[in-house]
Design a binder for these strands. Structure first.
Length: 246
DNA sequence: CCAATGCATTGTTACCTTGG
DNA sequence: CCAAGGTAACAATGCATTGG
């Protein structure tokens, strides 16, 4: 079983990151990653070795956007529930997304469903499914880590950015002790030091986000419906948020 | 109580600084 | 001097908080 996370850029001109986790019987292990994917074709090529196998893919991008303008119900619900943690999302609609050159999430999801994937979140724990899910890291972090407020680590000025990323990194390392555990490779454990250019900070951020998306997808697969909450539906758009199984 | 502000999201654009 | 890299401001929408 594979669990894959994709931190999808809105435009193919900006880099997309992806992380592949392998199920090793009692934990997830890092199999592969990329942080500079461009076009949809490039992303699908990176996924090619895995997407014929049982596989759950978590994508940080709107996959189902039926509304031409305004916002999706699930985005409003997310904002209502997680707004006080500052984890409200950015409301999306087709017109707005199109202005950036296309509905990428939808296109990617369609390519995958054409290849046999479903958008339906896992109904049974640890069943060998092939599913692609919309995930949203910030609310997921609030729930999984019990935060009172999101960790800000995106697009800040340099100092706060580095601090935020280090904190986010340290937080994610704790997944090692979660159920199921995520085993980090040694190269992922070292905290950013030395020549942290804007480019390398962005790459680090994208990598961490993709890894978290992969874990969220793998978490939903492992626990089944007890381990996630589906906000919204397949018709109007939904977001999958993990929850602690009771 | 209502209006204004702030914050969440990403990409583009204009402008500034730095390096070679 | 030009290229490249960095930064600030803007765009659209909704919720939470704050001020009057």
């Amino acid at each position: 079983m594979w669990a894959i996370g994709v931190d999808l850029a809105w435009s193919p001109r900006n880099p997309t990151a992806a992380v592949v986790l392998r199920w090793d019987g009692d934990h997830w292990a890092m199999e592969a990653w990329a942080e500079d994917l461009g076009s949809d074709a490039e992303i699908l090529e990176f996924l090619a070795p895995y997407r014929e196998d049982p596989c759950v893919i978590g994508i940080d991008a709107p996959l189902i956007v039926p509304n031409e303008e305004g916002s999706r119900p699930c985005d409003r619900w997310i904002a209502a529930r997680f707004g006080r943690y500052h984890a409200g999302g950015y409301p999306v609609n087709r017109r707005w997304l199109r202005s950036f050159g296309g509905l990428r999430g939808e296109a990617l999801a369609r390519a995958l469903t054409t290849g046999g994937f479903t958008l339906q979140p896992p109904l049974t724990p640890r069943a060998p499914i092939r599913a692609v899910l919309e995930v949203f890291p910030h609310p997921a972090a609030i729930v999984l880590f019990g935060l009172r407020r999101i960790i800000r680590y995106k697009r800040l000025s340099r100092g706060p950015w580095v601090r935020g990323l280090r904190r986010w990194h340290r937080q994610l390392l704790a997944l090692e002790r979660f159920n199921p555990p995520l085993h980090w490779p040694e190269t992922w454990r070292s905290r950013g030091r030395g020549n942290l250019t804007r480019r390398s900070l962005k790459a680090w951020e994208d990598r961490l986000d993709a890894a978290f998306c992969a874990y969220i997808a793998g978490y939903a697969w492992f626990h089944g419906p007890a381990g996630y909450e589906q906000i919204g539906d397949l018709e109007h758009g939904y977001v999958l948020i993990p929850r602690h199984p009771v």
